[in-house]
C-alpha cells in the first residue's frame, strides 16, 4: 500500500469486536496528504466501523491509529443536520467564527447560496447531503471521512455531487477516505480503491486508479474505466465465494 505523499493517517494491526463478534481483523491502511481513498466491500464487513475508528469515534480493541488531532471532517450516511438551524447556520456550525469566506465559497460552489434562509426540512435529499458536505468542509479539515455519502441519492444527483466533491477537493486539498457500495463512484473519485473482505473485515486488495484529474463524466463511459470497475467487481465477487 504505497503512499507517495506524506501520510496523514495510518492504521496498523487494528482489531475490533462488538459483543464478542469480531468485525475487524488486522486492518492496516495509510492515507496520504491530499489523497482520496475509497473503501468497498460486502455489507457488514466493518467499513463503517473502520471509518469511525479512523475518526476517533470508536477506540479499537487492539492496534495503532495515527490521525490528525483535530481538523477531521465527517460526512455521515444521514445528513445529520440541525433541524432548528437554517441552511446558512448549519453550514457555519463547525467553521471558525472569523472564517466567513469559506462558508460563502462552499455555499456558492454547492449551489446552496439561494437556499441559505431555508430550514433543513425544506431541502431535497441531494441538497441536504451537499449541506452536510459543506458543513464538514467549512471547518477546513485536513482529513475528510465520508460514510456512503451519496448512497441514498438518484444517479443524476449523485453524479453531479461527484463533480462538486472533486471541485472542492481540488480547491481545498484535503485528504479523503470514504466508504461506498458503488464501484463506479469509488473509481471516479478516488486515487486508490481498497477492497475489504467479508467479516471479520480486512483490507485484502488495493487498486490504484490511474486516471488524471480533473475527471469528467466522459470518463465513466471509457473502456479503461469499465475495465477497472470490472476488475474490482470481480475481486468482490471472488471474496464472496463466487465462481
Amino acid at each position: 500500500m504505497a503512499v507517495t505523499a506524506p501520510t496523514i493517517a495510518r492504521l496498523s494491526g487494528v482489531h475490533h469486536h462488538f459483543d464478542g463478534a469480531v468485525v475487524l481483523s488486522d486492518v492496516a491502511l495509510q492515507l496520504g496528504a491530499g489523497e482520496v481513498v475509497a473503501i468497498v466491500g460486502p455489507s457488514g464487513c466493518g467499513k463503517t466501523t473502520l471509518l469511525r475508528i479512523v475518526a476517533g469515534l470508536i477506540s479499537p480493541a487492539r492496534g495503532d491509529v495515527t490521525r490528525p488531532e483535530r481538523e477531521i471532517g465527517f460526512v455521515f450516511q444521514e445528513p445529520a443536520l440541525l433541524p432548528w438551524r437554517r441552511v446558512e447556520a448549519n453550514a457555519r456550525l463547525l467553521a471558525a467564527s472569523d472564517d466567513d469566506g469559506i462558508v460563502e465559497q462552499l455555499l456558492s460552489v454547492s449551489g446552496l447560496t439561494e437556499h441559505r434562509r431555508k430550514w433543513p426540512y425544506q431541502l431535497s435529499g441531494g441538497m441536504k447531503m451537499r449541506l452536510s458536505l459543506v458543513r464538514a468542509l467549512a471547518a477546513r479539515p485536513r482529513m475528510l471521512l465520508m460514510d456512503e455519502p451519496f448512497g441514498a441519492l438518484d444517479s443524476i444527483t449523485r453524479n453531479r455531487l461527484h463533480d462538486e466533491f472533486a471541485t472542492l477537493h481540488k480547491s481545498r486539498g484535503f485528504s479523503a477516505l470514504f466508504v461506498t457500495h458503488a464501484i463506479d463512484e469509488a473509481v471516479y473519485l478516488a486515487d486508490r480503491v481498497l477492497v475489504m473482505s467479508e467479516a471479520p473485515g480486512r483490507i485484502v486488495r488495493e487498486f490504484t486508479v490511474p486516471f488524471a484529474r480533473p475527471r469528467t463524466s466522459a470518463l465513466r463511459y471509457s473502456p479503461e474505466f469499465a475495465s477497472l470497475c470490472g476488475a474490482i467487481a470481480e475481486s468482490l465477487h471472488e471474496l464472496a465465494g463466487g465462481a
Binding site: L57, I72, F76, E78, L82
Partner: peptide, 29 residues
Amino acid sequence: VSSGLHDVFTLARATRWQRLIRLQLPAAS
C-alpha cells in the same frame, strides 16, 4: 437526540455544556 448529531458534536470536541445548550435542549424542545 440522534447518535448522528451526537457524533457531529463529538468530532467538534464539544464540551458537555456546549452539547447541552447547542444540541440536546434545542433537539428536545
